[in-house]
Design a binder for these strands. Structure first.
Lengths: 187, 187
DNA sequence: CTATTATATATGTAAAGTCATATAAAAGCG
DNA sequence: CGCTTTTATATGACTTTACATATATAATAG
């Protein structure tokens, strides 16, 4: 359960509601390398409260639904500290498009080029989104220790998207350059 | 269920048992961008047989456990063809190490450098493994249409691992170069 | 000669992730 | 004035993934 550790980390910054955690903290930071939906975050928070890793304060609001503000406990800090010292497994990638490309020889070139173009638009959008995140670049004197690590993870996100785009260019070039005698059966 | 489509694709090459599918076909190809364990593959094959996408032939063996050889049916080919034409979602990355790095400011530099070194060893091993896969490089005349796409997905795997290694170098350089006045509280 | 690895399939269980939907009311938009 | 978005939490239902374990035998390694 890396999700609970991500949440613990975010709660060290400031106490938050599940809603804020999801929409303000999580989705703008960790979601780039660890996705979770609203249901998962709420359920994980409930489990963490039972563990004693976080505590809840109910804020009654009259004009709004009540807020449950979660904050990290000493036990939670301890658990986060422990987890931060453990070795992490290598990343797991789920790439349906790569599965498709692996078997793309059965498709005609126009369809493949269309698939490539769509993937490119998606990755361009992701890259643009990353580049709008306001964290000072490496070397900037405004970068403190905390933000240095934020910046490093962002650098990885940007590097990944650039690698995808470069690869998509390569795919396109290869498909466009394929001679007919490389053509097998197609669907 | 992209796994069943991956299996369909592999079964277009040749009929196979679940065992062969897992240990000979899947793990040496698609596992790099779509992981699945033995239990999942066996259960997915059973579901696909119920769907009519594959059919089974029982080979009775005396000295060995019996083999169930799966082959793709016309309905399976049709489904694969349909799926190959659909647009695929962007990749999902689960990167526990990136979560850890995001909160690494709480760790001392030596621990961080150790984490980085361990990740590097893992990625170096993956890269070496990819580079041992015997698929002719792009441009090689021995590369037919089918293998061209295999090679392209391999190129992506190699590019990914190189991007990771470059990023780990960057992380290491940044951590080594951090001055004490960038140091915050640590655990 | 024993222990491990390879061949081959199956299942129980739990954790994690996805998708949809329910409730409730304010604020903003056209 | 009605429609959509934002704020805020909750749960049902399902699928997918992961981890462990069971069975059985041959071949290989030490």
């Amino acid at each position: 359960m890396s999700l609970s550790h991500a949440i613990l980390g975010l709660l060290t910054i400031t106490p938050m509601t599940g809603y804020e955690l999801k929409n303000e903290a999580f989705d703008t930071t960790i979601a780039h390398f660890w996705q979770a939906d609203q249901a998962q975050i709420y359920r994980t928070l409930a489990a963490m409260a039972e563990n004693g890793w976080v505590k809840v304060e109910l804020e009654i609001q009259e004009d709004r639904p009540n807020r449950k503000v979660y904050s990290i406990t000493e036990a939670g800090r301890e658990e986060l500290r422990r987890w931060l010292h453990t070795e992490q497994p290598l990343p797991i990638h789920r790439e349906p498009f790569l599965v498709q490309m692996f078997f793309a020889s059965a498709l005609d070139d126009a369809t493949i080029l269309d698939h490539i173009a769509r993937q490119r638009r998606g990755h361009e959008a992701r890259l643009a989104q990353y580049q709008r995140i306001p964290v000072p670049p490496l070397g900037d004197p405004a970068l403190d220790r905390t933000r240095t690590f934020w910046r490093l993870t962002l650098e990885m996100g940007i590097a990944m998207e650039r690698a995808y785009l470069a690869w998509l260019d390569q795919c396109e070039a290869v498909v466009r350059g394929m001679r007919d005698d490389e053509a097998g059966e197609r669907a």
